[in-house]
Design a protein around this nucleic acid. Structure first.
Lengths: 120, 120
DNA sequence: TTGACATATTCCCATATGGGAATATATATT
DNA sequence: AATATATATTCCCATATGGGAATATGTCAA
């Protein structure tokens, strides 16, 4: 182990939040765990998935810091760590101005078209 | 005959923007093409990657609508379609309130700790 | 037409993956 | 102690993948 960044056909799901979040099930889990902590069993039954699958997804999410865990008796209580989603938010935010501009241009073109129709 | 559910080991990179954007190179490309359209050759030399690799990444990005293309002579000019990033932004945004709350709690706990130290 | 340039496609291959099934580990209860 | 419950791990396997190299397609210029 150490710093190894190379011949990977596709970056590991555990390599960063972007990869971890690419899987729809894992986004579901994060949504579900956003407001309150839940046990693995609760997650499994709520999302209609087998417990081993949930455990594996949680392992990935925990590896990149997207969830916190604490033990409560036999149960492991997981909860979304929203802070880890922030980098994704920041990255997407850098494009916010752009889609606003693009929408304005679409609107302007539509208005020009409407004006042209009036004249004819 | 019946319904066969094909085993998908991992969703295709072309399945949605979340998967397309998981690849760091593709995020680089989107950053680079955010403000102005660029030819494949320009992208390749700017990001220090082989042209075939760039073309393949662009194919994925185009498939999910993250870039637009237009032909200009022999050149293909690509540009980021910011609108397609919006769903990612919206999803991450749903967690915005939460990390604000969590930061407040972290701050409060730190202050309590400091107060306890003062007393002792 | 021929040649030069720009981009796209194909072939190769080692690797991570997600789900299912079976099993292992950990904790609580009696 | 033994047993039940909760979670984690392991094994299996078909599949998509990213880069490199080679090649194909497309477009302009002379």
């Amino acid at each position: 182990m150490g710093i190894y960044i190379l011949p990977m056909p596709r970056a590991a799901t555990t390599s960063d939040p972007f990869n971890a979040v690419a899987e729809p099930r894992r986004r579901q889990i994060l949504d579900y765990l956003a407001l309150q902590e839940r046990s693995v069993g609760e997650i499994a039954s709520s999302l209609s998935l087998e417990q081993p699958s949930i455990s594996k997804h949680l392992k990935v999410l925990h590896h990149v810091g997207l969830v916190r865990v604490r033990r409560h008796g036999r149960h492991m209580l997981y909860q979304t760590n929203a802070e880890a989603i922030r980098p994704l938010h920041e990255w997407t935010k850098t494009f916010e101005r752009l889609w606003a501009h693009q929408l304005i241009r679409v609107k302007e073109r539509a208005e020009q078209k409407a004006a042209a129709l009036e004249e004819s």
